[in-house]
Amino acid sequence: MSNTIWVLIELENGQPARSSLEVLGKAAKLGRAEAVVLGAAAAEVAPTLGAYGAEKVYIHADATYDNYLTLPAVDTLSALLNDHQPRLLLLATTYELRDIAARLMVRNNLGLITDATDLAFAGEELQVTVPWGGENVVTATHPHQGTGIVLTRPKAFAVEQFDGRTPEVETLSISINSAAQAIKIVDSVDVASEGPALEDASVIVSGGRGLGKAENFQLVEALAKALQGAPGATRAIVDAGWLPYSYQIGQTGKTVKPTLYVAAGISGAIQHLAGMKGSKYIIAINKDENAPIFSVADLGVIGDALTILPQLTEEVKRRKA
């Protein structure tokens, strides 16, 4: 079977998404990486992908992909996959790529493995690593012939550089069926959170329900600011309306991997841990000595977050001065 590995590159404001570049680098280390770029900016983006591992790039520069969700991309990819039969289609787990993958799985009758943190080949056999349920890690494979789809977990791979690689670019000449224009984006509203983006922050200070009330979240923000980091939150306080969803870290929120993660008033539910336990150093402040968060903390402090947070903010400022 071919060792060609395809990566669908998601565009964000005309630029390749970082999450897609992470996956492209992994594909290039596993085999011959080929990228597919769909959207108005495809032609400008294509040549830049060599530096991230692509040997070939298929492009269709058409704004329909930017204005209508999922279906145009599924139509195009489905036909391309049939024609070229790559060994694998790799996608970063993002909102849009997930939706595309689900439909492709059905339309082309493909096996699909989600939430992968690593992939390798043992001879011909693909082995996909999937962490599962907090305490298990599974290796899975596609036992059937034909292309397999793998969705990878955010931040599973670093962006790799492939200096001097120039990809061959193939421009697709296809027209998009009007029936594929069924899911229309009417408008976009940014609800920007303050400070550095959570995904890129090297320090994150997060708060949970243990803070007691919404006003106390400013204690978290103050420490985050002193450490030049970003504030994050648990779903409990996002659901409670203290903060917008963009702050949520965990299984149904963002996956983060900072150098330092400070968890204040957070119990450490498995769904929260799923989004942050890849952090290099974890410090937890919790009143309850049995809180599960302590089992992942490098430094656990049994105490009141409402008194410790402001003291720590002062201490950090003092030591930095």
Partner: peptide, 19 residues
């Protein structure tokens, strides 16, 4: 269309210090 090959245990994060 997927098959689980092996099931292993996650390497537990070394429990740190609690004060």
């Amino acid at each position: 269309r997927e098959r689980v090959l092996t099931i292993g245990k996650v390497e537990a994060r070394a429990a740190g210090q609690v004060i």
